[in-house]
Simulated scan of single mutants.
Amino acid sequence: MAQEPDQQRRADSRRLAGYAFVTNESGHPLMVTGPDQHLAFPGGETIADEPAVQPAAYHLRRLGLSIAPGPILSVDHMEAYPLGGAPDVINFLFYCGKLTAPQVKSIATPKGQFEFVNPKFFHWSMTRYQRRCLDVALDALTNNTGCPYLRNGLRISHLSVSA
């Protein structure tokens, strides 16, 4: 007997999630308003056995953007909450390039639902976790540091994959 997706999800010990890192021409990353009203990268958790790149691509399409996610900027292993909470989640952040001015204008979501965030400032609606992910992604892009491996949003400096 095949398991229902909900039962299969509970049986899995880890979840996967994929997020898109895309900027405007000024280099400011696109962030969307999540269900908790904080800014987050476009993307989310996978469904059943799909690869982590699928939610990133799906959310870009929902924004009206025809962009294929590219190389991985970071991998973050978020450990499970204690006492039988949600299982571990592995977050992948994919580089998706720079948007042109016409692409920015074509974003198909209400104006208050997305924002291009200046990385020089800590945005009031961004969680500390999202800020750490943003900093690591920018470091990987600008300093060619390879794809860092994070644990709970913090870089484990001795673990990275060179590009």
Rank of each mutant, 00 (worst) to 15 (best):
F122P: 01
T109W: 10
Q103V: 12
F92D: 08
D76S: 05
D88A: 05
P119H: 10
A108T: 06
G153T: 07
S66L: 08
I67Y: 12
V104H: 01
G70S: 11
E115Y: 04
N143C: 04
L73A: 08
L159E: 12
I72K: 13
Y95E: 15
L93Q: 11
K111Y: 01
R132F: 01
F92L: 09
P69A: 09
D76Y: 08
C133W: 06
Q113K: 09
Y149Q: 02
L60Q: 02
R151H: 04
Y129D: 05
A108C: 10
H77G: 01
Q113L: 11
G70D: 08
L159V: 14
L73T: 03
Y149M: 07
A86P: 12
C96P: 14
C133N: 12
G146C: 09
S106F: 09
R128G: 15
E115P: 03
A101D: 14
G64Q: 11
G85Y: 11
Y81P: 06
C147E: 13
V104W: 11
G85L: 11
G97K: 14
M126E: 07
D76W: 01
G153L: 07
E79K: 15
L150A: 09
K111A: 14
Y81T: 14
P71H: 15
P148A: 04
L73D: 06
T109C: 08
A140F: 07
V104D: 01
L134P: 03
G85H: 12
P82Q: 08
I67W: 10
L141T: 01
L60S: 11
H123K: 03
V89T: 15
H123P: 00
P110E: 07
A80L: 00
L93P: 03
H77S: 09
N152P: 04
V104K: 04
L150T: 13
T142Q: 14
